[in-house]
Design a protein around this nucleic acid. Sequence first.
DNA 1: CTCAAAATTTAAATATAATCTAAATTTGTT
DNA 2: AACAAATTTAGATTATATTTAAATTTTGAG
Lengths: 140, 140
Amino acid sequence: MIQNISNHLITNGIKPSYQRIKVYEYLITKKNHPTVDMIYKELLPVIPTFSKTTVYNTLELFMKKGIAIMITIDEKETRYDADTSIHTHFKCEQCLNIYDLKTDLNAMDIPELKEHKITEQHLYFKGICKSCLTKPTPSH
Amino acid sequence: MIQNISNHLITNGIKPSYQRIKVYEYLITKKNHPTVDMIYKELLPVIPTFSKTTVYNTLELFMKKGIAIMITIDEKETRYDADTSIHTHFKCEQCLNIYDLKTDLNAMDIPELKEHKITEQHLYFKGICKSCLTKPTPSH
DNA sequence: CTCAAAATTTAAATATAATCTAAATTTGTT
DNA sequence: AACAAATTTAGATTATATTTAAATTTTGAG
């Protein structure tokens, strides 16, 4: 696993330091679209000298090299994702779960968009998920 | 104009104070998807006692009453829009212009989404706009 | 292996954005 | 005019992000 990550980083022109391997491992195993703070807090026990600046630096590098993207699932939070393919997020406002959805953007017809050169597309939804809809509402 | 805005606020259950009228007027005349700071800076000369807290309070109220929405056009900035209809934004990374696009989301087929109850949908693109594509690149 | 240079990580300082709090002002009612 | 309620305000606090410079680690030449 570590070996695979290491190779993947090298392939993408990134020197595989311990911190970088751990951050990347976090992203691909958890698949939880974390904030900087989530990554920092969860890796601190593993890397006692870990610093938040390293998280910022590492994610910046990953994005520059194209193996991670910055995503929006909620206007208030900056989150990151190692899945750089085109996909969509749905956040349940009740259980706060985040669902990854496949999106066929070619099926979406936005004529004005054809004129411009698109380099990034971001799509996210909010609402109540299937599971919460069937559950009785929690009384709080 | 002021009268129309005032009526519109009243219709939506908002007491039309001077500050609120000015903020709403700003949103609908500029249509520039401003940040809190943009609204504050541009209205300060008009309302010398104006406070940033008022901008936050006012936008919060507008959103609660459904006459404004919080939007994302760039992961780093929280922006606001008085156009609450479903539409899409495209930001040109070169001239930084923001284009509003009509979006037919029904044409977009995301089967998994049918299961959940969607209350909000957000869609934005980045790239180089038509105008910048034809212009020669600025040398800097 | 040893040393110096380069790369990486780190803590601390600074900057920016958002929220909270309590006081001051304004508005509406009697 | 006098009071109560609503609104605005400044300032304090918190959270998030960026910058800087020093410390540490890695790398490669000799």
